[in-house]
């Protein structure tokens, strides 16, 4: 089965979004996406028509796991030359992006992945289980721990100050 360039192109925006939240850094995110695409193209013979997004997310998971095991390389980047990010600095609810980045960074990588695949990528628990190669039960316990930790980390931040709607 042939992987079409246009199909791959269509998947790049969500891959970048997920990678940006996962790594907390625009350059590392695009490095991760690039490595993922190259990994996918290297394994295109294993591709079966169906869920391309899930297949690529699985590749990205594997790449990410490899990357976090390896000590990260020293990066020399000139702050002045970094590209403008379209990500807003302050979110609608007053929570600063850097606070969110920092709180996510403080999560263990496996919990961060699950939280983002569920909360940002809107994938089902079964899909997340398939991508991360873990049982659904493990997905649920990681999700639970991630939400508890993140709430604790963000306590005291602006999020707390935002008005809380009462669930009826």
């Amino acid at each position: 089965m042939i992987l079409h360039e246009r199909d791959l192109l269509a998947e790049i925006p969500p891959l970048r979004r997920y990678a940006r939240a996962l790594t907390g850094d625009p350059n590392r995110a695009d490095d991760l996406v690039q490595d993922t695409l190259e990994r996918a193209l290297g394994k295109w013979r294993l591709w079966r028509p169906g869920n391309l997004r899930g297949w690529l997310m699985t590749m990205m998971h594997n790449q990410f796991v490899n990357d976090v095991r390896r000590p990260s390389p020293i990066e020399y980047r000139d702050e002045d030359t970094l590209p403008e990010s379209s990500v807003r600095d302050t979110l609608a609810n007053g929570l600063a992006l850097r606070d969110l980045d920092r709180a996510l960074d403080a999560l263990p990588p496996d919990q961060r992945e699950v939280l983002l695949l569920v909360g940002l990528e809107d994938l089902s628990y079964q899909e997340v289980a398939a991508i991360t190669g873990t049982p659904v039960g493990t997905v649920m316990s990681r999700l639970s721990r991630a939400r508890t930790r993140l709430r604790a980390a963000l306590d005291g931040d602006e999020m707390q100050a935002s008005h809380l709607k009462r669930v009826k």
Partner: peptide, 11 residues
């Protein structure tokens, strides 16, 4: 918050 922070990357 995750959506409002990171959805712009996909745009």
């Amino acid at each position: 918050a995750l959506h409002s922070a990171y959805d712009p990357v996909a745009e």
